[in-house]
Design a binder for these strands. Structure first.
Lengths: 122, 122
DNA sequence: GTAACTGTTAAAGTTCACTTTAAGGCAAGC
DNA sequence: GCTTGCCTTAAAGTGAACTTTAACAGTTAC
């Protein structure tokens, strides 16, 4: 079992943000007899998953939806699947966008380098 | 020469946003004798470039910086180069992040599919 | 026993990139 | 002559995802 700050360090999400996620219904940590949050390995995995989804721009609302569906049980698996597939499509589209701009920048940068190099010879 | 709404259609940026970019000093369209904005091909290219940079999350402040440097003239080429290289690095990093999550999702999705398929047989 | 960490609620603030509204006025095409 | 599209300034609003503040209190480690 880990404390909120241990988890924060482990997954690189601030304690504040972790509490915020809880308020949003995205996580539901256990509590000890004093009401202090306790995080087990499953929850840490879930937080790492959240991290990856957020890094790839999944909106908080979708995260909420996913967490809610999970809590509702097994029969929501198909819906959760669709949510993930949907997000994957967005990711793949964004990869293409980024690649295209990356390549365009290759050209631009090459031109600039040539130009700057010329100048430095005078 | 193109009007603002023609340009808006061409580059898929709303007239409002184009005016906003002008206010921010990112573009500087010509004006006709009535003060109506006129866009030439060079400006349209610049707007398309802006579009690509925004789609890849370059902040408006960097766009401003770039436009300002450009206006300052040739001697700022090195600085503009650095700006673009910097942005390219971010793009490449983001591509890696997206790819990693894409692959993780492949695994998750496969597991869900197996699960959902099982259920549908009962 | 005191500093460090934990907790609470509720609200306000921040940043970013627009987007919208208001309220008016000029100019061109049918 | 009226609709459509263009112009202006200035300000307010939006949505997303935190982040911060306030103000207080309990618990644990050294």
């Amino acid at each position: 079992m880990y404390s909120i700050s241990e988890v924060a360090a482990k997954v690189n999400i601030k304690p504040h943000t972790i509490r915020f996620y809880e308020k949003e219904g995205i996580i539901e940590p256990l509590r000890d007899e004093n009401g202090v949050r306790e995080f087990d390995d499953a929850l840490i995995k879930w937080l790492m998953f959240i991290k990856k989804l957020r890094e790839t721009q999944m909106p908080i609302t979708d995260l909420k939806k996913y967490a809610l569906l999970f809590k509702e049980g097994d029969h929501t698996a198909r819906e959760r699947l669709m949510l993930l597939e949907n997000h994957q499509k967005k990711i793949q589209h964004q990869i293409e966008t980024l690649k295209a701009t990356d390549e365009m920048l290759d050209g631009k940068i090459a031109a600039y380098k040539k130009h700057v190099l010329n100048k430095s010879h005078r």
